[in-house]
Design a binder for these strands. Structure first.
Lengths: 134, 134
DNA sequence: CAGTATCCACCCAGATACTG
DNA sequence: CAGTATCTGGGTGGATACTG
């Protein structure tokens, strides 16, 4: 028993729109982590126009470290958003491409990007107003 | 100059769908942080059906700490997603409600939730397949 | 009731070096 | 080319105690 929150261990259930949500195993959070990660959604957007190789992605996203590029690609591959295809050339080349799931998510992501661009100014304004408090 | 990535300090620009994106000041990332935070989107969903007070939100989301509840509400208020109304009763009661911006975002969020529920199984399956590698 | 204020553990992500 | 390995700092979020 958690004294601070009153939550019972192993049964962390929030009520959202009248529907109980198990926060311990939440489908939405699962997906949210894929969009929320620092590079994940940018990666999916980068692959929108077609497959790219590791080094191409590196050049496309200049300020990602090799470590993070690898890890982000792994995570997205693991969750089924993209394919990893190895061509046995010398030296090896590896191509990444969106799966059907990835493309499905991409349409959602684009809505999200559009909304962001439309409302970015309003958010900045709200933020500025909040910050200039007396 | 960043040797590891080749990025020039202060000019971190990724090319997304052919469009240069300044990663230092990205509108999309700005919004992403609001959905990506651990409690942010859950908070907006919780306020979907009408205004709620601090303690009501606490009960609705059992496993959020007081600190995080306060901080999440502040962040969302600052960015213009919700209003904070103080009623000068004794003891004081404070009501939180969605702004127009918040409601606009809510519609997007609902699409996101729907997609998550529809595709959660596919993701779990992909994950399981990836993990059972030889 | 509706918060602040502290302290702290953890993990994410960056830097760097090395490899098949 | 396409990674892995290791070290490390900073930020996020949790626990706890106190307050107008």
């Amino acid at each position: 028993m958690n004294k601070a929150t009153g939550a019972v261990k192993g049964k962390r259930v929030a009520i959202v729109c009248g529907v109980p949500m198990d926060m311990g195993n939440c489908p939405v959070r699962d997906v949210m982590d894929n969009i929320g990660g620092k590079w994940n959604s940018l990666m999916i957007l980068s692959l929108a126009d077609g497959p790219l190789r590791f080094s191409q992605l590196r050049r496309l996203i200049p300020d990602i470290s090799q470590r993070m590029l690898t890890q982000t690609l792994r995570d997205l591959q693991r969750d089924g958003y993209l394919n990893r295809t190895v061509y046995p050339t010398q030296p090896p080349s590896v191509e990444y491409s969106l799966t059907d799931l990835g493309r499905s998510f991409l349409t959602l992501l684009k809505l999200f990007v559009d909304w962001s661009l439309e409302n970015h100014e309003a958010i900045q304004k709200a933020r500025a107003e909040y910050d200039e408090v007396p």
